[in-house]
Nucleic acid binder design. Structure first.
Lengths: 197, 197
DNA sequence: CCCTCGTTATGACAGCTGTCATAGTAGCCC
DNA sequence: GGGCTACTATGACAGCTGTCATAACGAGGG
């Protein structure tokens, strides 16, 4: 998650996602977002007339697209893609971050769901859309690897669910143990689904 | 999660857990907790001189014990316990709640991790302890069902991780799909680990 | 030069937060 | 009754929140 040099609007959306995944939605203030993005405070009401609601929703949309792009990139980097290999890459992104940069942040979509699912319908919908945008390419990839069509989406949900849960546990424990565990335990199951056809 | 008729102190701890799992730690105010518990506001500083930090930590301890007790009760209710049966019971608790009471709340431990892992060391530790208190009886149960000792704890972590992730997804989607999916997909894997011995 | 429009600047607003100081009450033991 | 302890009540505090009103800037076109 490196900050690209885009316009101030895009930087604020990115910064919002960054801060949300660190501190949660509620603890992330609009003034913090502008400061983190190096954007003027006055631009907030100009670019996001819908207020925090809109900013959070756009941050989640961004996160969903980002996750989907990562999946595509993982697949492109593997010469002989396997379900376990894809899952290992998805998990590896998090173990790498935690090992090199510490356990400061989690998944922004999960954070928004925990903080806002009950209090903001638009945030909840945006989170659901983000999960859907993430699940789709994973499921498609599984199908492409020989997983029966009927099981691709369930298995993709299992992968993302196990990853999300492991992220939470790892962050609480400040240990990547949970992440490496789910990757190791789930790998054979995923590969088996691709070969039984 | 039915409210027992205990003293005001215990009621406040319980109410804190209840509100945290609904709205997150940050959005849960001390005044809200007292009101929800039907306890006087003045009792907060009397019972919890450590402030919100202490209240949150105790709520997480309570949640960890509660989860562990539920596992023990699930096991006691099964005449021939199997790993998949235990997992189905754990997931079933959530599908039942969501189907009958709506998707208002998630797991308080996950909520605290998302909101406070970075900002409060004691809350983070309390969350890690809660996960540990929950994992232990699950792993012990797996061992008792014939799962090799070396795989019991990893599989318990996988179960709890997948459940936590599915809770988040289900709450975002307002659909139990993710929960039923992980229970169905993971069941055979768990039972296989118990019989290969 | 002036006018316009996308952007920014600034200050204010009510509302809420956790925390604290202080006082008050109820009950029990001596 | 006096004194002690456990608990409750209440009001205040500074600090922060999201939002808004208002004004100023700055470049580009007429």
């Amino acid at each position: 998650m490196v900050k690209p040099e885009r316009g101030p609007r895009e930087r604020m959306v990115f910064s919002a996602a960054q801060l949300i995944r660190r501190d949660g939605v509620e603890a992330t203030g609009m003034r913090d977002v502008a400061a983190h993005a190096g954007a003027p405070r006055g631009s907030l009401q100009h670019y996001f007339p819908g207020g925090k609601e809109q900013l959070v929703a756009e941050a989640l949309r961004w996160a969903g697209r980002y996750a989907a792009d990562r999946v595509a990139r993982f697949l492109a980097a593997m010469e002989r893609p396997t379900p376990s290999g894809l899952f290992a890459a998805m998990v590896g992104q998090w173990t790498d971050e935690y090992r090199t940069s510490g356990f400061a942040g989690g998944c922004p979509v999960a954070a928004a769901t925990v903080d806002r699912a009950q209090s903001s319908e638009t945030a909840r919908e945006a989170a659901a859309d983000a999960f859907a945008a993430w699940t789709r390419p994973v499921a498609d990839a599984l199908t492409g690897m020989g997983v029966p069509a009927a099981r691709s989406e369930p298995l993709a949900t299992l992968m993302i669910g196990a990853l999300e849960g492991a992220i939470v546990i790892a962050r609480a424990e400040r240990d990547v143990r949970a992440l490496t565990t789910v990757a190791r335990e789930l790998g054979p199951l995923l590969d088996a689904a691709a070969t039984e056809a």
